[in-house]
Amino acid sequence: MLLIHCPYCDETLPELEFAYAGEAHIARPVDPSALSDEEWRDFLFIRTNARGTHFERWRHIHGCARFFNAARDTVTDRFLVTYKAGESRPDLTVKESAE
């Protein structure tokens, strides 16, 4: 069971309070009708399936109920950072080189 830092509650809490919510930073197109079938397919189905750092969404479902974003290493299962929904993808190179 992982520990997850909720950026809204500012607390690190057991995974059982959270629900996974898929890959992050896949914004719904403002005008879906303007997209080609291929573009829409990519939006719907194509995911990065990263080995290593993965940007993903979680929801603090049994807590503040907010969706938020996280960068997690899919090899070690380690959370690198969590941040609020709507915030841009953090630059992890700085953090990594410091380690």
Partner: peptide
């Protein structure tokens, strides 16, 4: 206070 989970109940 907090919202949390008790077994499977919020």
């Amino acid at each position: 206070g907090c919202r949390t989970v008790f077994d499977s109940a919020t």
